[in-house]
């Protein structure tokens, strides 16, 4: 098709997206990078700070807590969200009456503004006025765990809320992947007497490696952007123990007006997020080649 393509037409086609994207996404990253080396307070110039802001992170316990919590959410996303999304996709993939409607309903949490998701779950997880603890009392369990607001459980609760929010989305992608499996293979295997489990184990999962790859990549990039639900659910509290990377960056930048330090945090969030997703993308590709 060589005769079709000229460099000029290539440039013309790429240019609009490239310009908007570079101006409104890449330029801001460079801008943040620049300010991460200053003591800027958001309003008045604060002088050059060298690597101070990055050094400050090493001694900032709250920053490491936020990293760890992001790790917890990532763990829950990879080890619960992805497999559960897959199982749910199988469950809702057509055997059940009205499964189309069910799939639409399960997707509902994914279309709600994340800030609302946080608000909604306060009324479920709050140790005092929340539904879960009320339910525990009602069925005679005296324990009233601090799902959110306590020093330990909050990041796990955030992870679960994230799971709730994303599962419909993940399910949809898996469902699409399932439908792409060649029908003749499935038919042949069930004629051969393969049980449902065997079909799953030996045919569906191996054939859907690509889909798993895409889902993983999306989930990983998603985790590094979790913010609103933490903001609404716990506000990062108590004392920043439930902060995730972006919410902590928000706190430093806007609440404490340490813009320079906040931008350094932002750069780290971006780099860690980009590396993690690049790793998953590359991992996918390698697996693809092996096959």
């Amino acid at each position: 098709m060589n005769w079709l393509t000229t460099r000029r037409s290539f440039a013309l086609m790429v240019a609009p997206a490239l310009i908007v994207y570079s101006l409104y996404m890449i330029y801001p990253i460079l801008y943040s990078l620049y300010y991460s080396f200053t003591r800027f307070d958001g309003v008045s110039a604060g002088g050059f700070a060298g690597l101070d802001n990055y050094r400050q992170m090493a001694h900032d316990d709250a920053f490491w807590t936020s990293m760890r919590n992001t790790g917890v959410v990532l763990g829950i996303a990879l080890f619960l969200l992805v497999p559960l999304g897959f199982l749910l996709a199988i469950l809702l993939s057509g055997r059940v009456k009205g499964s189309g409607a069910l799939r639409a309903l399960v997707f509902a949490p994914a279309i709600i503004a994340p800030i609302l998701v946080g608000l909604i779950w306060i009324f479920i997880l709050d140790p005092k006025i929340g539904l879960v603890n009320a339910f525990l009392l009602a069925i005679g369990v005296p324990a009233q765990p601090q799902w959110i607001g306590g020093p330990t459980l909050s990041p796990y609760s955030i992870g679960l809320v994230y799971l709730w929010q994303q599962i419909g989305f993940v399910l949809t992608i898996f469902y699409a992947g399932l439908r792409m499996l060649p029908r003749d293979v499935m038919e042949a295997s069930s004629l051969d007497g393969a049980g449902r489990w065997q079909q799953l184990r030996y045919i569906q999962i191996p054939m859907m490696r690509e889909t798993f790859g895409i889902v993983t990549a999306l989930v990983v990039t998603g985790v590094f952007k979790v913010f609103e639900l933490v903001y609404a659910l716990t506000g990062g509290g108590p004392v920043h123990l439930s902060e995730v990377m972006v919410s902590y960056m928000y706190h430093i930048t806007f609440t404490t007006q340490q813009y320079g330090y906040g931008m350094a945090l932002a750069v780290v969030v971006f780099v860690v997020g980009a590396l993690a997703s690049a790793a998953t993308f590359l991992g996918n590709r390698r697996k693809g080649e092996v096959r």
């Binding site: 409104y24 890449i26 801001p28 943040s32 952007k225 960056m249 932002a266 971006f270 997020g273 997703s277």
Partner: peptide, 13 residues
């Protein structure tokens, strides 16, 4: 761009 947290965009935008 998939990894960019939107809050770093606010000031520059």
């Amino acid at each position: 761009g998939l990894a960019v947290p939107v809050y770093i965009l606010l000031f520059p935008v």
